[in-house]
Protein backbone atom coordinates (compact mmCIF):
# COMPACT_ATOMS: atom_id res chain seq x y z
CA UNK A 1 0.00 0.00 0.00
CA UNK A 2 1.20 3.50 -0.85
CA UNK A 3 1.52 5.78 2.12
CA UNK A 4 1.87 9.45 1.43
CA UNK A 5 0.88 13.01 2.22
CA UNK A 6 -0.87 15.04 -0.43
CA UNK A 7 0.25 18.67 -0.51
CA UNK A 8 -2.84 20.91 -0.51
CA UNK A 9 -0.87 24.09 0.22
CA UNK A 10 2.93 24.08 0.02
CA UNK A 11 3.80 26.84 2.48
CA UNK A 12 6.37 29.54 1.82
CA UNK A 13 9.63 27.65 1.64
CA UNK A 14 9.14 23.96 2.39
CA UNK A 15 12.11 21.75 1.49
CA UNK A 16 13.61 18.44 2.58
CA UNK A 17 16.79 18.83 4.58
CA UNK A 18 19.20 16.79 6.67
CA UNK A 19 22.52 17.71 8.24
CA UNK A 20 24.08 18.67 4.89
CA UNK A 21 25.97 17.50 1.82
CA UNK A 22 29.71 17.63 2.42
CA UNK A 23 32.97 17.28 0.54
CA UNK A 24 31.85 19.09 -2.63
CA UNK A 25 32.42 22.77 -1.91
CA UNK A 26 35.51 22.75 -4.17
CA UNK A 27 33.11 22.06 -7.06
CA UNK A 28 30.85 24.91 -6.06
CA UNK A 29 28.34 22.84 -4.10
CA UNK A 30 27.53 24.29 -0.69
CA UNK A 31 26.66 21.98 2.21
CA UNK A 32 23.06 23.30 2.64
CA UNK A 33 21.26 21.29 5.34
CA UNK A 34 18.74 22.29 8.01
CA UNK A 35 18.94 25.85 9.29
CA UNK A 36 18.20 25.12 12.98
CA UNK A 37 20.05 21.90 13.81
CA UNK A 38 18.66 21.47 17.31
CA UNK A 39 15.04 21.88 16.19
CA UNK A 40 15.68 19.54 13.24
CA UNK A 41 17.23 16.79 15.38
CA UNK A 42 14.46 17.20 17.96
CA UNK A 43 11.77 16.42 15.38
CA UNK A 44 13.58 13.17 14.54
CA UNK A 45 14.09 12.26 18.19
CA UNK A 46 10.39 12.77 18.88
CA UNK A 47 9.45 9.99 16.46
CA UNK A 48 12.37 7.71 17.31
CA UNK A 49 14.39 8.23 14.13
CA UNK A 50 18.14 8.62 13.98
CA UNK A 51 18.71 12.35 14.40
CA UNK A 52 20.16 12.80 10.90
CA UNK A 53 17.08 11.37 9.07
CA UNK A 54 15.70 13.69 6.37
CA UNK A 55 12.86 15.93 7.53
CA UNK A 56 10.69 18.61 5.99
CA UNK A 57 11.78 22.14 6.85
CA UNK A 58 9.31 25.01 6.57
CA UNK A 59 9.69 28.75 7.04
CA UNK A 60 7.08 31.19 8.45
CA UNK A 61 4.11 29.24 7.09
CA UNK A 62 4.21 25.49 6.61
CA UNK A 63 2.20 23.22 4.34
CA UNK A 64 -1.34 21.90 4.57
CA UNK A 65 -1.10 18.17 3.92
CA UNK A 66 -3.52 15.28 3.82
CA UNK A 67 -2.53 11.85 5.04
CA UNK A 68 -3.25 8.89 2.74
CA UNK A 69 -2.62 5.33 3.90
CA UNK A 70 -1.68 3.64 7.14
CA UNK A 71 -1.53 5.45 10.48
CA UNK A 72 1.84 7.02 11.11
CA UNK A 73 3.76 8.59 13.98
CA UNK A 74 4.78 12.16 13.19
CA UNK A 75 6.11 15.26 14.97
CA UNK A 76 6.45 18.97 14.39
CA UNK A 77 9.27 20.79 16.15
CA UNK A 78 9.92 24.46 16.71
CA UNK A 79 7.60 27.23 17.89
CA UNK A 80 4.75 26.36 15.60
CA UNK A 81 1.02 27.00 15.45
CA UNK A 82 -0.70 24.08 13.69
CA UNK A 83 -3.99 22.21 13.58
CA UNK A 84 -4.93 18.62 13.02
CA UNK A 85 -8.10 18.36 10.96
CA UNK A 86 -9.97 15.13 11.65
CA UNK A 87 -11.92 13.13 9.06
CA UNK A 88 -15.17 14.66 10.35
CA UNK A 89 -13.61 18.16 9.93
CA UNK A 90 -13.18 18.58 13.67
CA UNK A 91 -10.18 20.84 14.27
CA UNK A 92 -7.77 19.95 17.05
CA UNK A 93 -5.01 22.33 18.07
CA UNK A 94 -1.64 20.67 17.51
CA UNK A 95 1.13 20.53 20.06
CA UNK A 96 4.62 21.15 18.75
CA UNK A 97 7.57 19.18 20.14
CA UNK A 98 5.26 16.28 20.90
CA UNK A 99 4.80 13.33 18.54
CA UNK A 100 1.31 12.18 17.54
CA UNK A 101 -0.46 9.67 15.34
CA UNK A 102 -2.06 10.67 12.08
CA UNK A 103 -4.51 8.50 10.14
CA UNK A 104 -5.99 8.19 6.69
CA UNK A 105 -7.76 11.32 5.38
CA UNK A 106 -6.69 13.44 8.36
CA UNK A 107 -4.97 16.71 7.59
CA UNK A 108 -2.18 18.67 9.20
CA UNK A 109 -2.38 22.42 8.70
CA UNK A 110 0.87 24.15 9.67
CA UNK A 111 -0.39 27.71 10.01
CA UNK A 112 2.71 29.61 11.10
CA UNK A 113 5.85 29.70 13.12
CA UNK A 114 5.53 31.89 16.21
CA UNK A 115 8.12 34.65 16.65
CA UNK A 116 10.61 32.41 14.81
CA UNK A 117 11.34 31.37 11.24
CA UNK A 118 11.91 27.61 10.89
CA UNK A 119 10.09 24.47 11.97
CA UNK A 120 10.44 20.77 11.09
CA UNK A 121 8.14 17.88 10.29
CA UNK A 122 9.37 14.32 10.81
CA UNK A 123 7.83 10.90 10.43
CA UNK A 124 8.80 7.61 12.08
CA UNK A 125 10.70 5.53 9.50
CA UNK A 126 11.49 8.58 7.39
CA UNK A 127 10.26 9.99 4.08
CA UNK A 128 10.81 8.06 0.85
CA UNK A 129 13.23 10.50 -0.68
CA UNK A 130 16.40 9.87 -2.64
CA UNK A 131 19.84 10.91 -1.56
CA UNK A 132 21.84 13.04 -3.96
CA UNK A 133 25.57 12.76 -3.34
CA UNK A 134 25.02 11.37 0.14
CA UNK A 135 22.39 13.79 1.37
CA UNK A 136 18.68 14.58 1.07
CA UNK A 137 19.23 18.31 1.56
CA UNK A 138 17.66 20.56 -1.04
CA UNK A 139 19.47 23.44 -2.72
CA UNK A 140 16.69 25.11 -4.68
CA UNK A 141 18.93 27.57 -6.56
CA UNK A 142 20.88 24.75 -8.21
CA UNK A 143 17.98 22.26 -8.28
CA UNK A 144 19.93 19.76 -6.17
CA UNK A 145 18.20 17.27 -3.87
CA UNK A 146 14.97 15.29 -3.57
CA UNK A 147 11.70 16.49 -5.15
CA UNK A 148 13.82 17.50 -8.19
CA UNK A 149 15.68 19.93 -5.99
CA UNK A 150 12.59 22.06 -5.57
CA UNK A 151 10.33 23.48 -2.88
CA UNK A 152 7.04 21.66 -2.27
CA UNK A 153 4.28 22.50 -4.74
CA UNK A 154 0.52 22.04 -4.65
CA UNK A 155 -0.35 18.48 -5.62
CA UNK A 156 3.02 16.96 -4.71
CA UNK A 157 2.88 13.60 -2.97
CA UNK A 158 5.29 13.04 -0.11
CA UNK A 159 5.76 9.28 0.22
CA UNK A 160 6.96 7.82 3.49
CA UNK A 161 8.27 4.53 4.80
CA UNK A 162 5.86 2.79 7.10
CA UNK A 163 7.24 0.99 10.10
CA UNK A 164 4.69 -0.72 12.30
CA UNK A 165 6.43 -0.37 15.64
CA UNK A 166 6.06 3.36 15.68
CA UNK A 167 3.19 4.27 17.92
CA UNK A 168 4.90 5.47 21.08
CA UNK A 169 4.42 9.20 21.40
CA UNK A 170 7.04 11.37 23.04
CA UNK A 171 7.47 14.91 24.28
CA UNK A 172 10.64 17.02 24.36
CA UNK A 173 11.09 20.44 25.90
CA UNK A 174 12.69 22.62 23.19
CA UNK A 175 13.82 25.93 24.62
CA UNK A 176 14.59 28.82 22.33
CA UNK A 177 17.24 31.32 23.36
CA UNK A 178 15.33 34.51 23.94
CA UNK A 179 18.22 36.96 24.07
CA UNK A 180 19.44 38.77 20.99
CA UNK A 181 23.18 38.54 21.62
CA UNK A 182 25.01 36.70 18.86
CA UNK A 183 28.57 35.69 19.68
CA UNK A 184 31.12 36.09 16.91
CA UNK A 185 34.84 35.67 16.33
CA UNK A 186 37.02 38.15 14.44
CA UNK A 187 36.75 37.87 10.65
CA UNK A 188 39.69 37.48 8.31
CA UNK A 189 39.44 41.08 7.08
CA UNK A 190 38.37 42.85 10.26
CA UNK A 191 41.31 45.26 9.79
CA UNK A 192 39.68 46.49 6.55
CA UNK A 193 37.29 48.47 8.76
CA UNK A 194 38.05 51.66 10.66
CA UNK A 195 38.59 51.40 14.42
CA UNK A 196 35.33 53.26 14.94
CA UNK A 197 33.43 50.87 12.68
CA UNK A 198 34.87 47.87 14.51
CA UNK A 199 33.64 49.40 17.77
CA UNK A 200 30.25 50.18 16.23
CA UNK A 201 29.90 46.62 14.99
CA UNK A 202 30.41 45.16 18.46
CA UNK A 203 28.32 47.74 20.32
CA UNK A 204 25.45 48.95 18.13
CA UNK A 205 22.25 47.11 17.30
CA UNK A 206 21.65 45.66 13.84
CA UNK A 207 18.19 44.97 12.47
CA UNK A 208 17.33 41.78 10.59
CA UNK A 209 15.74 42.87 7.30
CA UNK A 210 13.21 41.15 5.05
CA UNK A 211 16.01 40.37 2.60
CA UNK A 212 16.76 37.20 4.49
CA UNK A 213 16.53 33.62 3.29
CA UNK A 214 18.46 30.35 3.45
CA UNK A 215 21.36 32.00 1.59
CA UNK A 216 21.92 35.00 3.78
CA UNK A 217 20.60 37.50 6.28
CA UNK A 218 20.91 41.16 5.37
CA UNK A 219 21.23 43.50 8.32
CA UNK A 220 20.61 47.20 8.66
CA UNK A 221 22.37 49.50 11.09
CA UNK A 222 25.37 51.77 11.57
CA UNK A 223 27.23 51.88 8.25
CA UNK A 224 30.65 50.19 8.46
CA UNK A 225 33.47 52.16 6.93
CA UNK A 226 35.94 50.19 4.84
CA UNK A 227 39.36 51.89 4.84
CA UNK A 228 41.31 49.32 2.78
CA UNK A 229 39.42 47.91 -0.21
CA UNK A 230 35.76 47.22 -0.95
CA UNK A 231 36.71 43.90 -2.54
CA UNK A 232 39.08 41.07 -1.78
CA UNK A 233 40.42 38.32 -4.02
CA UNK A 234 37.56 35.83 -4.08
CA UNK A 235 38.02 33.18 -1.42
CA UNK A 236 36.11 30.23 0.02
CA UNK A 237 33.20 31.02 2.32
CA UNK A 238 32.30 29.47 5.65
CA UNK A 239 28.74 29.33 7.00
CA UNK A 240 28.15 32.15 9.46
CA UNK A 241 30.68 34.54 7.88
CA UNK A 242 29.62 38.18 8.08
CA UNK A 243 30.61 40.02 4.92
CA UNK A 244 30.33 43.73 4.34
CA UNK A 245 29.84 44.91 0.74
CA UNK A 246 30.47 48.45 -0.46
CA UNK A 247 27.29 49.88 1.07
CA UNK A 248 28.63 49.16 4.57
CA UNK A 249 25.67 47.03 5.69
CA UNK A 250 26.58 43.53 6.90
CA UNK A 251 25.25 40.30 5.41
CA UNK A 252 25.49 37.04 7.37
CA UNK A 253 26.05 34.09 5.04
CA UNK A 254 23.75 31.18 5.93
CA UNK A 255 23.41 27.50 4.99
CA UNK A 256 22.92 27.97 1.20
CA UNK A 257 25.70 30.58 0.83
CA UNK A 258 27.72 30.97 -2.39
CA UNK A 259 30.87 28.83 -2.12
CA UNK A 260 33.29 31.67 -2.86
CA UNK A 261 32.96 35.41 -2.52
CA UNK A 262 34.81 38.65 -2.90
CA UNK A 263 33.64 40.87 -0.02
CA UNK A 264 35.68 41.47 3.14
CA UNK A 265 34.48 39.65 6.24
CA UNK A 266 34.33 41.41 9.58
CA UNK A 267 33.33 38.47 11.79
CA UNK A 268 32.07 34.87 11.98
CA UNK A 269 29.12 33.64 14.03
CA UNK A 270 30.12 30.85 16.42
CA UNK A 271 28.52 27.44 15.88
CA UNK A 272 26.69 27.46 19.23
CA UNK A 273 24.75 30.63 18.32
CA UNK A 274 23.85 29.76 14.71
CA UNK A 275 20.46 28.16 15.51
CA UNK A 276 19.47 31.14 17.63
CA UNK A 277 20.47 33.53 14.84
CA UNK A 278 18.54 31.87 12.01
CA UNK A 279 15.32 31.91 14.02
CA UNK A 280 15.34 35.73 14.31
CA UNK A 281 12.49 37.19 12.28
CA UNK A 282 12.83 40.36 10.16
CA UNK A 283 12.54 43.45 12.32
CA UNK A 284 14.36 41.87 15.27
CA UNK A 285 17.46 43.72 16.44
CA UNK A 286 20.56 41.74 17.31
CA UNK A 287 23.87 42.66 18.91
CA UNK A 288 27.23 41.05 18.28
CA UNK A 289 29.54 40.02 21.08
CA UNK A 290 33.20 39.33 20.32
CA UNK A 291 34.57 36.07 21.76
CA UNK A 292 37.71 33.99 21.17
CA UNK A 293 38.12 30.37 20.08
CA UNK A 294 38.22 29.01 23.65
CA UNK A 295 34.88 30.61 24.50
CA UNK A 296 33.40 29.35 21.23
CA UNK A 297 34.56 25.80 21.91
CA UNK A 298 33.21 25.89 25.46
CA UNK A 299 29.89 27.25 24.15
CA UNK A 300 29.78 24.40 21.64
CA UNK A 301 30.19 21.84 24.44
CA UNK A 302 27.19 23.37 26.22
CA UNK A 303 25.26 23.44 22.93
CA UNK A 304 25.77 19.74 22.08
CA UNK A 305 24.51 18.76 25.52
CA UNK A 306 21.06 19.92 24.38
CA UNK A 307 20.94 17.21 21.69
Amino acid sequence: MNNYFKVLRPGINSTFQDLGRFGLQHLGIVASGCMDQLAFCTSNKLVGNKISEGALEFAYQGPLIEHVGETALVAISGKVNFNIIKKNNEIIKGKPNESFLISNEEKIDILSTIDSVYGYFSIFGGFKIEEVKGSVSTLVKAKIGPNNGDKLKVGDKIFFNRSHQGDKTNKIQLDFDKDNIIRVMKGLQIHYFSKKSQEDFFSKEYKVTKLTDRMGMRLEGQKLENIVDKNIKSEGITKGSIQVPGDGQPIILLSDHPTIGGYPKIANVITADYDKLVQKIPGTTIKFKLVDLLVAEKAFQDYVRKF
Binding site: F22, G23, K233, E235, G236, I237, T238, K239, T271, V304
Partner: peptide, 20 residues
Protein backbone atom coordinates in the same frame (compact mmCIF):
# COMPACT_ATOMS: atom_id res chain seq x y z
CA UNK B 1 33.65 18.58 6.02
CA UNK B 2 34.80 20.70 3.08
CA UNK B 3 37.92 22.10 1.42
CA UNK B 4 37.67 25.06 -0.91
CA UNK B 5 40.63 26.28 -2.94
CA UNK B 6 40.58 29.77 -4.44
CA UNK B 7 43.22 31.87 -6.25
CA UNK B 8 45.57 32.18 -3.28
CA UNK B 9 43.88 30.44 -0.34
CA UNK B 10 42.60 27.08 0.79
CA UNK B 11 39.76 27.05 3.27
CA UNK B 12 39.14 23.89 5.30
CA UNK B 13 35.93 23.38 7.24
CA UNK B 14 35.72 20.77 9.96
CA UNK B 15 33.24 19.26 12.35
CA UNK B 16 33.53 20.90 15.70
CA UNK B 17 33.83 18.26 18.40
CA UNK B 18 35.48 15.79 15.97
CA UNK B 19 38.78 17.58 15.42
CA UNK B 20 40.40 20.81 16.60
Amino acid sequence: LNYTPSYNKLIINFELGQIK
